[in-house]
Write a protein that binds this DNA or RNA. Structure first.
Length: 482
RNA sequence: GCGCCCUUCGUCUAUCGGUUAGGACUCAAGAUUUUCAAUCUUGCAAGAGGGGUUCGACUCCCCUAGGGCGCGCCA
């Protein structure tokens, strides 16, 4: 065993767990839609596990469903992974391109007597299931062609190839997350390996591809747990090594229901558009189902050093945008002003002129601790690019009362005489407030309203400095004239 | 229907038989403050229910309830 101290029972002598063998993980999405948050977490765990063990992380596109697979979805998945920083090794494997090899395995099994032809029509099988349902019996292929002699074959009907699975005994999946999961072989039926048109089914393709790609650890969604027992039949029939499994509990929406567009099953690119940082997404996703004591903020470097399969939880987790916001806020505050400016710049879509980046960087210390996402950051920075006369929101309007305006009017001549840097401006305003028997806030708030059009902003002296003397005085003048 | 999985504060989780059941998010209060944040402090809040096993169960076993997944010539 490579891992020691595993708390879940696992005594299987897998040779894939040999210390000498390079660990190979894979992420195998089917391109029938975008990469959603559950898939992203699966990819993350696979990536982390391979990086933790200096192994290999591979990407396989399961595009064998020709009806539903689209190039756009493939594109979205690739872009999503790239944005998340989950770089894969080697070339991408496209499953459909390997159909011949899959068929070859099915035929090999047939030749070995581990599989057989079945001529039952879809209609016939549907009728069979209907009867099983009506009789309250388990729904599964009844093996009607399992033992028929070759002479019984129907000449004008192309057959499917079905696995000849064991009918007694049990199949045990030693799962790193779920523990030992046992399936009576009587509940496993002779599923189809090769369709009547000669194309392989998913069940066959996965097993063959995982073997050919040298996958040692299969980390995937819980929905595949029962499939693992079926896939095991193919693995055994071929005499291939059994990979180590880790089936992750599925993720739920904020309301505990299945993930759907309403609550969290957004494409991963939409999280980007919402203004989340990839490193924050990684941290957040990691903590959904995996833990390291009480640690919450876990950098990617730490995650790579610490990640294991043993600490993956067994119960489903819900997405929680409040927590994501909080984690994202942490990473924003820790990010460099330059990096944040670069990440935020695109949100202005070219507005703001060539010196916007410099202004953003200058204002960033005050901006970044007031925002939880890049979108909020850009919003808070609107005053940097606003054109005079500024739009003034309701709360700011209230601050610009007659008294407020009068204060601004008296401030202008003072500012004209003041060196334009933070400490001097600070001194001048405090001095002014003191001489007029005003609290600092009574002066700062109207100033803020006139300068930013809002009632909240970064520190007012920083705003003054970032805006510059001419622009600042202009904005103040706009509010004192009318 | 059959099989499998899951169940600790509202949410994410710690706990590997003995703890005042801990942390984080959210929320509330306070401190700080030129606003809002950030930061710090404090508070609210949990072992689905029922049986066992044990000197002692959140932890081990069984049952029930609830939730999820699978049962395609889909993946």
């Amino acid at each position: 065993m490579l891992r020691t101290g595993a708390k879940r029972p696992n005594s299987s002598p897998n040779r894939t767990q040999s210390r000498l063998m390079t660990i190979v993980t894979r992420f195998a999405p089917s391109p029938t839609g975008f990469l959603h948050i559950g898939g992203a977490r699966t990819a993350l765990f696979n990536w982390l596990y391979s990086r933790r063990h200096s192994g290999v992380f591979r990407l396989r596109i399961e595009d064998t469903d020709r009806q539903r697979s689209t190039p756009a979805a493939i594109e979205a998945i690739i872009e999503g992974l790239q944005w998340l920083g989950l770089n894969w090794d080697d070339e991408i494997v496209y499953q459909f391109a390997r159909a011949e090899r899959h068929a070859e395995v099915a035929k090999h099994l047939l030749a070995q007597g581990r599989a057989y032809h079945c001529y039952a029509s879809p209609e016939e099988l549907e009728e069979m299931r209907e009867q099983q349902r009506a009789a309250g019996k388990p729904i599964r292929y009844d093996g009607r062609w399992r033992d028929k002699p070759a002479t019984d074959r129907r000449p004008n009907v192309p057959p499917v190839i079905r696995i000849k699975a064991p009918q007694t005994g049990e199949t045990i999946i030693h799962d790193k997350v779920q523990g030992d999961v046992r399936f009576g072989n009587d509940v496993l039926d002779d599923f189809i390996l090769l369709r009547s048109d000669g194309t392989p089914t998913y069940m066959l393709s996965v097993v063959v591809d995982d073997f050919d790609m040298g996958v040692t650890h299969i980390i995937r969604g819980d929905d595949h747990l029962t499939n693992a027992a079926r896939q095991r039949q193919i693995i055994d029939a071929m005499g291939w090594p059994i990979p180590t499994y880790a089936h992750l509990p599925l993720m739920h929406g904020e309301d505990g229901q299945k993930l759907s567009k309403r609550h969290g099953a957004l494409g991963i690119h939409e999280y980007k558009d919402l203004g989340y940082l990839p490193e924050a997404m990684r941290n957040y996703l990691l903590r959904l189902g995996w833990s390291h004591g009480d640690d919450e903020i876990i950098t990617t470097e730490q995650a790579i050093a610490w990640f294991n399969l043993e600490n993956i939880g067994r119960s489903p987790a819900r997405v929680d945008f409040k927590k994501l916001d909080n984690v994202n806020g942490h990473y924003m505050r820790q990010a460099s002003d330059e990096a944040l400016a670069d990440a935020t710049l695109p949100l202005f879509k070219g507005n703001g002129g060539p010196d916007l980046r410099a202004k953003l960087i200058a204002a960033m210390p005050g901006l970044k601790e007031r925002a939880k996402t890049l979108v909020e950051l850009a919003d808070g920075a609107q005053f940097l690019i606003a054109k005079r006369p500024l739009p003034i929101d309701d709360k700011a309007q209230k601050l610009l009362s007659p008294e407020g305006r009068s204060i601004l009017a008296r401030l202008i001549p003072i500012f004209e005489q003041t060196p334009w840097e933070s400490a001097a401006l600070d001194g001048a305003v405090r001095n002014f407030a003191e001489h007029n028997g005003l609290k600092l806030g009574a002066v700062a708030q109207p100033l803020r309203a006139a300068l930013t059009g809002r009632s909240t902003s970064p520190g007012i002296f920083d705003v003054l400095v970032v805006l510059g003397k001419a622009e600042s005085l202009g904005r103040l003048a706009d509010q004192t004239k009318s």
